[in-house]
């Protein structure tokens, strides 16, 4: 395992710059070379009147034509955090630093890394290596830290089922943040913390999240407003309608449900209860599904000679590789 894993996000020069302040932002997770989903997500975010778009890194991997992602991010003024993949490609390291230990996971990770490294033009490497490992902003009065895996380690996996609430609260304390935004695992989730603090894993654009649906996800965060509970209920209902319009099957039982925290969440198939939610106070988080031409992506993956297992994931919505990193609870939700 490379020492590069240990790079500390607090060393980033971005931490010393004045943090921009926003009311409403879009935050994108790992892109994994899925430029088609990236284009759709940015268009969708613009339609929703976000003030800024951020991306939490891992621009390459898994998908075809890695060079197509960079101009889209730059042309749309997307602020990007360096993920472990970007660090490896940018600095010419021998592997992606995902930290797999399983031989099968490592085999596919090596195939993916070799392809992405070879297909990334040399001119992008300094840009990737120069991306900040941490960004800071404010949403309303909240201090927001944007990172890839965790604020302390770029390739740390923070899964919903294996990350305690007090651990996230410690991260907030240690890193002077009210809100921490991360990606890296590939599956979105959120947790309300003490003192109105918040952790959000924004999910990824690169591949579906192992639930049998082909869409991918990003997150919109908005500063507290004077919205009433009924308005949030309306938002949740609208979000449910939007999800129904995407490619996956609708379930007649999908309805917004009140929760113990006084928020309203969209309960869908018993898994995606996060589409719209509002903590008792604080920032409003919406997870947004993104449909894109996944069949075209799969066809391009095949024509590039990438493993059929990768294309199968895009077409089926079930992970076929990188399975051993999944905790039992998350893995049970998938097919493999």
């Amino acid at each position: 395992m490379s020492d590069a894993l240990q790079f500390k996000t607090t060393e980033s020069p971005s931490a010393t710059r004045a943090a921009p302040s926003h009311r409403r932002v879009a935050v994108l997770g790992g892109v994994y070379s899925n430029y088609l989903a990236l284009e759709e997500a940015i268009k969708d975010a613009r339609r929703r009147n976000v003030e800024a778009i951020y991306c939490l890194g891992d621009l390459g991997a898994f998908g075809p034509h890695p060079d197509r992602v960079f101009p889209i991010l730059i042309d749309n003024d997307v602020q990007v955090v360096r993920g472990n993949y970007d660090d490896s490609i940018g600095r010419g390291l021998p592997d992606c630093q995902c930290g797999y230990t399983d031989p099968r996971d490592n085999h596919f990770a090596a195939v993916s890394y070799r392809y992405t490294y070879q297909q990334t033009n040399e001119r992008w490497r300094p840009w990737l290596a120069g991306l900040p490992t941490e960004l800071r902003m404010k949403i309303g009065e909240s201090r927001v830290l944007l990172c890839h895996g965790s604020p302390r380690k770029t390739n740390e996996f923070l899964w919903e089922s294996t990350t305690s609430t007090q651990f996230l609260e410690r991260l907030c304390r240690d890193h002077d943040a009210d809100v921490i935004l991360a990606t890296h695992t590939g599956i979105k989730w959120r947790r309300d913390l003490d003192d109105d603090r918040l952790f959000v894993n924004v999910g990824v654009l690169g591949r579906p999240e192992n639930d049998g649906r082909t869409n991918v996800w990003y997150a919109i965060l908005e500063a507290p407003s004077h919205r009433t509970t009924n308005e949030y209920k309306h938002l949740a209902t609208e979000s449910a309608k939007r999800q129904s319009a995407t490619s996956f099957a609708n379930n007649a039982n999908d309805v917004p449900q009140p929760t113990e925290r006084g928020s309203h969440e969209v309960l869908k198939h018993g898994t995606d209860k996060y589409a719209v939610s509002q903590p008792a106070k604080g920032i409003h988080v919406e997870f947004v599904p993104v449909s894109y031409d996944h069949e075209r992506l799969a066809a391009e993956m095949r024509s590039e000679g990438l493993p059929s297992e990768f294309a199968d994931t895009i077409l089926s919505g079930h992970w076929t590789t990188c399975l051993e990193i999944l905790p039992g609870k998350e893995r049970r939700r998938g097919r493999f």
Partner: peptide, 16 residues
């Protein structure tokens, strides 16, 4: 290293 943690050191997934 990491001999006590859960990270699997070897496995074969059902897809193969």
């Amino acid at each position: 290293g990491a001999i006590c943690s859960n990270v699997a050191s070897a496995a074969t997934a059902s897809t193969d």
